[in-house]
Amino acid sequence: MLIERLVIGDPAAKELLYDRYAGALYGIVLQLVPVKERADEVIVKVFFWAFHHIAAFQTSGHRTLFAWLLRKTREFAIKEALPETALTGKELMKQEEGVLQQFYMILPADQQQVFRLSYFKGLSITTIARLLALPEEQINDILKDAMKSFRQFLKETWN
């Protein structure tokens, strides 16, 4: 099994991990960091991190390596992302494509705003509440509604 081989440090398993997941993760990274050089850097960091912390997968609560890698990918991507004011528009590559962007587009305006700030920008509920001048409970409810919609979206499209 791939995980066991990764835990013992099998180089062929590491290559396999990269070949299997790099494409899918890169597609997501480009939705979060629309600057190619920074997206490349995120992928390198994610795989270096994964090779060194593979033992942590067992206790992460995730059932698939993809979800475990995706979670870390988002963390690195948020750190690498440029502020929107620094983007010129030329570097946007997959802003309108990809599963997360497709989901974002079908959300109502209030859920779009909260989901964008929470998932794409990595802001906490408290920060979002302050930014939007709304109570934290309301932000929590909006995000929960967005997650219900995400469940439906995934079930309907990729069940």
């Binding site: 990269y18 790099a22 992928i43 995730h62 059932r63 993809f66 599963v99 995934l154």
Partner: peptide
């Protein structure tokens, strides 16, 4: 997790070859 994985695998974007080289060189 599998649904999300399938969704991501439906629209993969392969990173440049030099990224693979960098990762594998480190291995």
């Amino acid at each position: 997790e599998r649904r999300l994985e399938r969704a991501a695998f439906d629209e993969p974007a392969m990173p440049p070859v030099e990224i693979r080289d960098r990762v594998l060189q480190k291995i």
